[in-house]
Design a protein around this nucleic acid. Structure first.
Length: 423
RNA sequence: GGAGGGGUGGGUGAGCGGUUGAAACCACCGGUCUUGAAAACCGGCGUCCACUUCGUGGACCGCGAGUUCGAAUCUCGCCCCCUCCGCCA
């Protein structure tokens, strides 16, 4: 959520920048509701002042044994007027809040203007795509041949876009999770947390998935819960409605969780293999920082995620998202794209964003800079470190051998019981 | 699932129909004292919103309704926490 006062004061400038996101926003609605809300509020508050004053007088009169019947009748009338004014006020405030919750974050000034992913800006590349003296296979063929995936049975158990990993495949996924968690906790200074995988409506609203993107989520009714689409949701909400202590920042968490997404509207895409699943594993990095530090922390966050790929010796590139491709809550985002020989393409494996105070304002996460100072909203950031299923895909495709076997990256061998090859 | 207890400001915790936005203590900030520090003493210290020049007003004591001229205090519903019993990974 944006700051209402900021929005009011800088409306022209914000409108212009927001237009580069390629989304329609009804700014007339904002101006109307904002004005309407303030007018009505001022009127109702004046009446309440009168009512409070009269009630106080009644108290005094009664205490001194007087007759307050006339005063009481007067208050009755004022109360009636207040009731009549509060009805439209509540309606306007509800509409206003709804509006504010559906306005996306403002792109940070350095974010390049562009209409779609095609206009994202490549920042840097690392590693060279492997040269094979045989035709590179895609991961689902590799996996089926090695007997480590079983998509047919996964479909029987659950449906399309679910996976069943077996034997060395299951172990490799687990090895990747442990490797990532160990790296981030031991080398990068993150605290490991294991959060709930189901969350309530307030948590989803706090990070920005609700109210706008309910159709992307799996929902459990009775009681009302949502399956998390990313650990960002439960982990960012750890500090919802909290006043953080001075000197506590920055806070860095790493969490492994499964993630659940409806993937509505992606019917034609990535129908085969592990790339796009309803359920996948992810190791997520989440930070809470002071506003001045957040962009430095974003750069470090990207490097932390890159380190995973470098240690696995997987070629990748870093891309800066343009305004048109930016997520709803993000002010700035870098994507990491790993090279997939089976597709001869770079594919997203991590997304690292600074949300500035957008989520903190929704979730009421604040701290005091000075002991006497006003509370201020923290900045929140998060990034995949990494998407585990896609990392496994990248390992299979980049480490495939002519004979159909897979060499296990060195850093994973201790997590695989010393195994150095599958197949 | 059954029975009971409880949710108050940054923290502990009083208040249980009328200047109570809320005692007291801790923490924190300013001052006195001191060579300096500590201790002691004095003073200050919630958040959000609206209108505004200092300021004025409104709202907030888990959340939401209600009773009342007036609710942190009474009533109802919901959520959460704790204790005991039952069931259970």
């Amino acid at each position: 959520m944006l700051d209402v006062k900021f929005l009011r004061e800088e409306l022209t400038r914000i409108k212009e920048r927001m237009a580069t996101r390629e989304t329609e926003i009804d700014w007339d609605e904002f101006v109307y509701l904002d004005q309407q809300r303030r007018d009505t509020l001022a009127r109702v508050e004046k009446l309440k002042e009168r009512k409070n004053r009269l009630s106080g007088e009644i108290g005094k009169v009664k205490k001194s044994g007087g007759d307050a019947i006339a005063l009481m009748r007067e208050v009755e009338e004022v109360s009636e007027t207040i009731r009549k004014g509060e009805e439209p006020l509540a309606e306007i405030e509800a509409r206003f809040e709804k509006f504010m919750l559906t306005v996306p974050n403002l792109p940070e000034p350095s974010v390049p203007v562009g209409r779609s992913a095609a206009e994202n800006r490549e920042v840097r590349r690392w590693g060279d795509p492997p040269q094979f003296d045989f035709p590179a296979k895609n991961h689902w063929d590799i996996g089926e041949e090695l007997g480590i995936f079983d998509f047919t049975r996964a479909a029987k158990i659950a449906g399309a876009r679910f996976a069943l990993y077996k034997d060395a495949g299951a172990r490799l996924e687990r090895a990747l999770i442990n490797f990532m968690l160990d790296l981030h906790t031991q080398k990068h200074g993150y605290r490991e947390v294991l959060p709930p995988f189901l969350v309530n409506r307030d948590a989803m609203t706090g990070t920005g998935q609700l109210p706008k993107f309910e159709e992307d989520l799996f929902r459990v009714s009775e009681p009302d819960f949502f399956l998390i689409p990313t650990a960002e949701v439960p982990v960012t909400n750890i500090h919802r409605e909290e006043m953080l202590e001075r000197g506590q920042l920055p806070i860095r968490y790493v969490a492994y969780t499964p993630c659940f997404r409806r993937e509505a509207g992606s019917y034609g895409q990535d129908v085969r293999g592990l790339i796009r699943q309803h359920q996948f594993n992810k190791v997520e990095l989440v930070k809470f920082t002071e506003p001045e530090e957040s962009y430095d922390e974003l750069e470090k966050l990207v490097v932390d995620a890159e380190t995973v790929l470098q240690q696995l010796r997987l070629p990748y590139r870093v891309v800066e998202l343009c305004t048109g491709d930016l997520g709803f809550a993000a002010a700035k985002t870098y994507d990491l794209e790993v090279w997939l020989p089976g597709q001869s393409a770079y594919r997203e494996i991590s997304s690292c964003s600074n949300f500035e105070d957008f989520q903190a304002r929704r979730a009421q996460i604040r701290y005091r800079k000075e002991t006497k100072g006003k509370p201020i909203f923290v900045h929140t950031l998060n990034g995949s470190g990494l998407a585990v299923g896609r990392t496994l895909v990248a390992v299979l495709e980049n480490y495939q051998q002519k004979d159909g076997s897979i060499v296990i990256p060195e850093v994973l061998r201790s997590y695989m019981g010393g195994l150095d090859r599958i197949g």
